[in-house]
Design a protein around this nucleic acid. Structure first.
Length: 695
DNA sequence: GTTCTAGAAC
DNA sequence: GTTCTAGAAC
């Protein structure tokens, strides 16, 4: 494989050989309510390419349409040089087969799988009216459930050249955009995109949304294995390709660097399943590659999950058959294109789109940190290589010829390099949409992870506050502190405002939004976002989350419901914000209160690090998790106040920012999707959130 | 929790 | 010089 980053192959090889105006037959796959018709209409109204939507619900002119009618309409349209959407459920392989048979040599066969959660589809069906096929109202749930029982995900071996999976609304949006931008002569690159890993689909699907037989999966694996140029690994894992950080221009010691790469990777892979890391270097004489290979072998790291790869990081799929979800860029601190090496090559291949998308995320990068930038679908790296994200990462600089070098301080250098890899891998974990519930460590970023042991200590401390000091098994000098804390929790007079309100709401009723038997709702006096209310318990003695035990579950649940009710009310006035409901691990004000807060954090009262981190680190405990944990263990996990001193990171894209003003100007424009953790379990409530309709 | 302000960081 | 943080007082 040639190592040149500057070959001419950024022009898709397919682009040259294809005559213009090839047609596309795109089969939508998804149950009623998954948004097939909306998808088609959105693309058709925006596209320069002529599209025809063939819909079985409408093709019969009032009567129920047939598949045969759809086939005929599709073939007619293709013959006229138009591209076609097949808008019917197409959930079973057999249902799709006939359409694929008509695939002439001038037509690309695509599948677009709208793999949204079943409950979302059901709820949409139940709530809609005037549906073309009358799948709506009460009968919809039965129909959708039945259809979902035995469905098969489309497979390349059915004859599709491209299959795109959408798991959520933002995927759908992105794919609509991609198809809308497809000009008459353009072609999307072949392959499977956006597919969930096996583990994820197992965890997310309530009713085995798309069943796939083991036999099929194996044959698919064989197929992929055969075409993957003998790198020995199947292509089913999300893969991060990364160059060695700091060892080129920044002259980091190779031996030390290789240790850090291997250790960081091993640590990451231990904690995260279903991902793969690929260290990439241009030259097969690369010293860093051989050092890493040697150490990987010694450590017995799974060679399917950590690979070394010689090749151009911008052409891993097109030239090397290695499909990567994300590639890391050894960036400079200004996040500028150019320079040399990997940074120049990636910015060049990704096109201007990456520069623009990067600017939207962050202006600068600190050594030891990273920022993940989603690649616009127009980028050649996305279209040709199937790369969805570029993760910029900055390592330590040991080069005396460069400004701000570390003067051979390898204590500092090694720490920064470790931080850089940890941050890179964590960013990748977010990108790869990992299920992180079962591994609480993963929820934390690098810096939080390093604070993990401290956090544990803190939790223990908090726990032991409630115990008598005679339990001295691991007591040490903490006992003195404990004794003081056990005696009384000293609330300053300023910290009693909520308590006083809860005990005598009538006195303060002018400022209250709602007074119920067991809780009160009021606006936070210093709101940290456009919408920020408190649901305040009225129970005397329930001072904070630490006090909440099983007997408090009814009040916790009723506070939660009240919070959700107010979210609904806010969303009915303005559907744009997202909300979280949760408690501070260690509150400043006495009397248990639930924060209901919109995620814009656009407020002059949000002034310092503590404010930010109290809502955007594990210090903030989502109400849903608190209830689950108390149900399961009798108490909720608490995080220590150490987290409040953490570096400032955007709650959406996780980029780091040096101070509050910079962070605030960033979050005002950041539109990255929220971290996967927040998208689960209704931690994040929005107008499109189905749970709001059900509760 | 906020306000105030010294002094660190830029 | 200005901006921003962090600690003390309330």
């Amino acid at each position: 494989m040639d190592g040149g980053a500057s070959s001419d192959s950024h022009i898709s090889p397919k682009g040259k050989e294809e005559e213009s105006n090839r047609t596309v037959l795109a089969i939508l796959v998804g149950p009623p309510g998954s948004g097939k018709s909306t998808f088609c209409e959105a693309v058709i109204s925006a596209s320069r390419r002529p599209w025809v939507r063939v819909c079985q619900d409408t093709i019969g002119n009032g009567k129920t349409g047939t598949k045969a009618q759809c086939l005929k309409a599709a073939v007619d349209a293709l013959n006229e040089g138009k591209s076609v959407f097949i808008d019917r459920c197409n959930l079973e392989r057999e249902q799709r087969a006939d359409f694929l048979k008509f695939c002439g040599s001038h037509t690309d066969m695509h599948a677009i799988v709208l793999d949204l959660p079943a409950k979302v589809c059901i709820s949409r069906c139940v709530n809609r009216t005037g549906h073309e096929g009358n799948v709506q109202g009460g009968r919809a749930a039965v129909i959708v459930n039945k259809m979902l029982q035995n469905k098969e995900a489309p497979n390349l071996n059915e004859g599709f050249s491209r299959i795109t999976f959408c798991q959520n609304d933002s995927d759908v949006k992105e794919v609509i955009k991609m198809y809308s931008e497809l000009g008459p002569a353009d072609k999307l690159s072949p392959g499977e995109f956006g597919k969930k890993s096996k583990k994820e689909s197992g965890q997310q699907s309530i009713m085995k949304f798309f069943k796939k037989s083991a036999r099929e999966e194996n044959s698919q694996k064989e197929k992929e294995g055969a075409s993957s140029s003998g790198n020995g690994a199947g292509n089913e894992f999300p893969t991060l390709a990364f160059p060695s950080i700091s060892t080129a221009d920044f002259q980091f010691d190779l031996d030390k660097a290789s240790d850090i790469i291997v250790e960081s990777a091993q640590d990451f892979l231990k904690r995260v399943d279903n991902v793969r890391l690929a260290l990439v270097d241009l030259s097969d004489k690369s010293r860093i590659i051989s050092l890493v290979r040697e150490k990987v072998m010694k450590k017995g790291i799974d060679s399917n999950r950590f690979i070394t790869f010689v090749g151009d990081i911008t052409m891993l799929y097109s030239k090397g058959g290695l499909r990567c979800t994300a590639i890391a860029n050894a960036a400079n601190w200004r996040l500028k294109p150019g320079g040399g090496g990997v940074n120049a090559a990636i910015f060049k291949e990704a096109g201007e789109a990456l520069d623009i998308a990067t600017k939207e995320r962050a202006e600068t990068l600190n050594p030891g940190s990273s920022v993940a930038v989603p690649l616009p679908s127009t980028s050649p790296l996305y279209q040709r290589e199937g790369v969805t994200h570029v993760i910029h990462v900055l390592g330590p600089n040991m080069n005396p010829q460069r400004p701000n070098y570390l003067q051979n301080d390898y204590t500092k250098g090694c720490k920064i390099l470790r931080d850089a890899y940890s941050s890179l891998f964590e960013s990748f974990a977010s990108v790869a949409c990992l299920e992180r519930n079962k591994k609480p460590k993963l929820v934390e970023l690098k810096d939080e992870t390093s604070g993990e042991s401290k956090k544990k200590e803190n939790q223990e401390e908090v726990k032991s506050r409630n115990q008598n000091q005679t339990t001295t098994t691991s007591g040490k000098s903490k006992n003195k502190e404990n004794r003081e804390e056990v005696k009384s929790r000293n609330w300053g007079s300023w910290a009693l405002a909520l308590y006083n309100t809860a005990m005598d709401p009538e006195k303060y009723k002018d400022g209250l939004l709602e007074i119920a038997d067991d809780f009160i709702v009021l606006n936070d006096l210093y709101p940290k976002a456009r919408k920020h209310v408190l649901v305040l318990s009225r129970l005397n003695g329930l001072d904070c989350l630490e006090d909440a035990k099983r007997e408090h579950l009814p009040i916790l649940k009723s506070m939660h419901s009240a919070g959700v009710k107010w979210v609904k009310k806010f969303l009915s006035e303005d559907p744009s914000p997202h909300f979280r409901l949760g408690y501070h691990s260690v509150p400043s004000m006495r009397q248990l209160h639930l924060h209901v807060i919109s995620q814009d954090f656009d407020s002059p009262s949000l002034k310092n690090k503590k404010h930010w981190n109290s809502f955007n680190t594990a210090f903030f405990r989502d109400s849903v998790d608190v209830i689950d944990e108390i149900e399961e263990h009798g108490s909720a996990k608490l995080s220590g106040e150490k987290l409040l001193e953490m570096e400032l990171r955007c709650h959406r894209c996780k980029s780091a920012h040096p101070n509050i003003p910079k962070l605030k100007s960033h979050i005002a424009k950041c539109r990255a999707s929220y971290p996967p953790h927040l998208l689960q379990n209704s931690r994040l409530l929005s107008a499109s959130n189905n749970d709001l309709n059900i509760n």
